[in-house]
Design a protein around this nucleic acid. Structure first.
Length: 248
DNA sequence: GCATTAACAGCCG
DNA sequence: CGGCTGTTAATGC
């Protein structure tokens, strides 16, 4: 039995899931890195501080699974998650990375449905979450919070269009370039900054390339002065040109 | 031709 | 030491 199953079955807590099991409160540093907190007034921030849970997640561990009832609105404080819509039958269909600063699941929380994606840690990560009730409470009362969610949905729509473009690009270097540009999105993933901590293995997995070919693409993008390859990560030098990169 | 897997040495934290 | 990186060789579509 998985840890998540054990937690859901064995706990008498009203909430099930990852954050119920072994979570803790957020540190001051972690709170400071949450972009939407600044949009709330004192009372709202107070409720969020009480409700917010933080949990370390091991590599390979699931944050949420397709079909489970919604429990939390999640954020990545550190590490790297992958979002996939693979079902029990058939191959994984789409992947997207979720780097630090990213918050996700609001679509499911708003509808109070079941999760429609699997979220899995690519490596050791730290994940935060607020309960669905608190999320709805904020939506019902905070203009600033609504503004954040609206902006986020808008930016993510752009990401989906870009993802469709990436799917149609055939050249591996271009796919890597645009995938990187997406991961460096300053509004959706403010925790990333200039340096994205991602191994070439992980990036290859997200883009759908072998590690060796990913390594070659990164070398080409470095030669073009768009990025700098560092040990265990990539530094962005020119995100705009990365976003529209074409070979030749 | 081009990407993939496999394998390896070297380097980094 | 374990994990990541850069590179080469062999294989496949």
């Amino acid at each position: 039995m998985s840890k998540a199953q054990a937690a859901a079955r064995g706990s008498a807590a009203p909430r099930s899931g990852l954050l119920a099991a072994r979570s803790r409160r957020a540190t001051a540093d972690e709170l400071a890195g949450i972009p939407w907190l600044a949009r709330l007034d004192a009372a709202e921030r107070s409720r969020v501080r009480d409700d917010l849970r933080v949990v370390p997640v091991e590599a390979g561990e699931y944050v949420c699974r397709i079909g489970r009832p919604v429990t939390y609105w999640f954020g990545v404080l550190d590490g790297l998650l992958k979002m996939s819509n693979d079902s029990a039958l058939g191959m994984p269909i789409t992947f997207t990375g979720m780097p630090p600063g990213g918050w996700f699941g609001e679509g499911t929380v708003l509808k109070r449905e079941v999760y429609r994606y699997n979220i899995q840690a690519l490596r050791r990560s730290v994940v935060a979450g607020i309960g669905a009730d608190t999320f709805h409470w904020l939506v019902d009362r905070s203009l600033g919070f609504n503004r954040f969610v609206l902006d986020q949905l808008n930016e993510r729509l752009g990401q989906f269009i870009a993802a469709r473009e990436i799917d149609r690009l055939t050249h591996p270097d271009e796919r890597v370039a645009r995938s990187l540009a997406a991961l460096f999105h300053p509004l959706l993933y403010p925790g990333v900054g200039e340096l994205l901590r991602i191994t070439q293995q992980e990036l290859g997995y997200l883009v759908g390339l072998s590690r060796q070919r990913t390594n070659e693409a990164l070398a080409a993008l470095q030669r073009a002065r768009l990025i700098r390859v560092e040990y265990g990560g990539v530094r962005v030098l020119d995100r705009e040109r990365l976003r529209v990169y074409r070979v030749g």
